[in-house]
Each structure stands twice: as C-alpha cells, then as structure tokens.
Write a protein that binds this DNA or RNA. Structure first.
Lengths: 157, 157
DNA sequence: CCTAACAGTTAGGCTACCTAACTATGACCG
DNA sequence: CGGTCATAGTTAGGTAGCCTAACTGTTAGG
C-alpha cells in the first residue's frame, strides 16, 4: 500500500459516519451493561470460556494467553478478570497436565448459569430497544451485522 | 407495556447478534483510539464544544451540565475532562455573564486544530479498514448507520 | 546442563467513570 | 428583606479495566 491514495471521499465519508455511530453507541452499550450482576469485561470472559471450554478437545479449560488474545487485551488484564471470576465462584483455575507453566481456566456451574442469565437479560433489554424500529430498519440493521462481523474478524488477525 | 410479551424470537435473535457485533467492536474502537494524541473521551468532549459553541446563540461556550448530558456521563466526570483539556490548552473556562453559578466552556484555537487533526487521522484509519470491503458490504453498512443513529437518539431522550 | 523462550502472576500506574459531600449563587415566597 | 430550597459546579475518594515492567517457574534446544 503506497502512502498517498488520494482517499476516495465517499469512503472517508462512510468512515466518518461509522465512527460517529460507534461513538454514540457507547450510550447503548452502557445501557446494556447497567443491568448489574456482570460487567461487560467479565461477561465476555465467561463467554470465551464457554465457547472454548468443554466443546474443544482440550483436556478442559482455556489458557490464559488464549483468553487474552481472544478478548484483545494483554495477559495481565486477563489474569485480573479471571481472578475476579474465580473469587465470585464463576470460574476455576487448574494446572495444565501437559505443561506446568500453563493454567487451564474453566467455567463452574454457577458461571454457566450466570452467563445464561446475563445474556437473557441483556437480550431482553436490547430487544425492547429494537422493537420500536420499523421492519425496514431492522432489516437494514440485520444486513449490516455480518459486515461489521467481517470488519472485526479482519482486525483480530 | 405489560410484562410478558412472548418475546418474538426473531427480534431476540437480532438483539443477540447486534449485541455481539457491538461487543466485538470494542476492538475496532480501541484501534481507532490508539492513534495517541487525544483519548476518545476528550475528542468527544471537544466535538461537543465545537458543535454547541460559536454556532449557538449563547454568549459563548457550553455549560458543564450540557456537556455531561450530551456525553452521557455525570457532571463530575465532565468537569474532570474539561480540566484536562484546559490544562492542555485545548479549551477554556469562563464565568457565565448571566449566572454566576454557571461556567461556559469553549474551544481554543489549538483545540479546534486538535479536533480537526484527530478526526482526520481517525477517519483515515477507518477508511483504510473499510477499503477492504466489497461495494455491497459498504452499501449494507451505509444503510444501517441511520438506523443505529435512530436507536442512539431514542436512548438519549 | 545452561541458556533462551515461554506462561503466568505481581506490582505499580493511568484513564474514565461513579457517588457523596461541599460551596456558591439564584429564585421563590411570606 | 430574609429564609429556604433548588441549581451549577467542584472536590474528595473509590472502582473497573486496561497497560508496562519486573519477577517466578517451566520447558526446549544446543
């Protein structure tokens, strides 16, 4: 990519609008997270444990480094969240049988229940918000979500 | 609104997907904010000053309470940002001529320049990300932005 | 073995929020 | 007027979530 693409004005306009939408969405996100119980960071962590957990063929649990990578944070930040979850009884840490340096983190029963409950409550709040939209608006939103997903996936890499 | 709308499953699914998209977008937002210079909170504050500032018929500047309301934070949080901006020479505080309790906050020249520069840099980063999408994807995204805007506007009220 | 790479934790620091308590001014009303 | 209540903002103190740097212990390779 050479430096000076003259920067397609339409592209920049879209970029600007998208940025603006994301910026204002902080509001929405805060509303969702206000449900109490579980913070956004902790819910994300628990979700990661759920996905990577019993399903995967690994002995059990997810490694701290993988959690950090998946959440887009540094390892110490992941450790911090894990410790909090452990203290809350939602996750547990065990040594990795194959590598004594590593740690396997897994959901507890309570953790699983907490994810479900939190998801349900947040979905309900969001559904309430979306219910005031027209069908057309909802369709437009639905059509854009895969695109946003694509963008986010690109970024992870 | 009675309690038990049976909760249209399609609506809940959309809610779930949208939540997921927003959650993953933290990544994107962090990428954008990593440009240094100005934090997201400070850029938002400066933007608010720009919009509500010289344009409005008010003597000059925006009141702290209005800034807080607009940014969706409490007054002390706004004060904090304003003080930082002031120390950085990007904003200035002056007494309100009509109400000695109130404070008027306005952009300085340097503040104006900083907003422009930060916007430009962030737009460029975002445009770069969006440039890898297909035309169809970009169209879908563009179509959804007004909807997201509508949601956010509803929430403000 | 011994050194280098790796996994995670600990320590310390920062930003952006929050609530509660305080100061000062304005507005209402008898 | 003068008292009381409301309003605008600041100050004080606390929390969550992130970071980097430094440390501990483990594995892997020459």
């Amino acid at each position: 990519m050479t430096v000076s693409e003259p920067a397609d004005p339409g592209l920049v306009a879209l970029a600007q609008d998208f940025r603006e939408a994301l910026r204002h969405s902080i509001y929405l996100v805060r509303r969702l997270d206000a449900d109490g119980e579980l913070s956004a960071a902790q819910l994300s962590t628990l979700k990661m444990l759920m996905e990577g957990g019993p399903t995967s063929r690994e002995p059990s649990g997810v490694r701290v480094g993988d959690i950090a990578r998946n959440l887009g944070v540094k390892v110490p930040s992941a450790t911090e969240q894990i410790i909090k979850l452990e203290r809350a009884g939602l996750a547990r840490r065990e040594p990795d049988p194959h590598d004594a340096r590593a740690v396997r983190v897994a959901l507890t029963e309570a953790g699983l229940a907490a994810v479900d409950a939190a998801n349900e409550r947040r979905n309900a709040v969001m559904a309430g918000i979306l219910s005031s939209l027209s069908d057309g608006d909802r369709a437009a939103l639905a059509a854009a979500l895969p695109v946003i997903g694509k963008i986010n996936a690109t970024l992870q890499a």
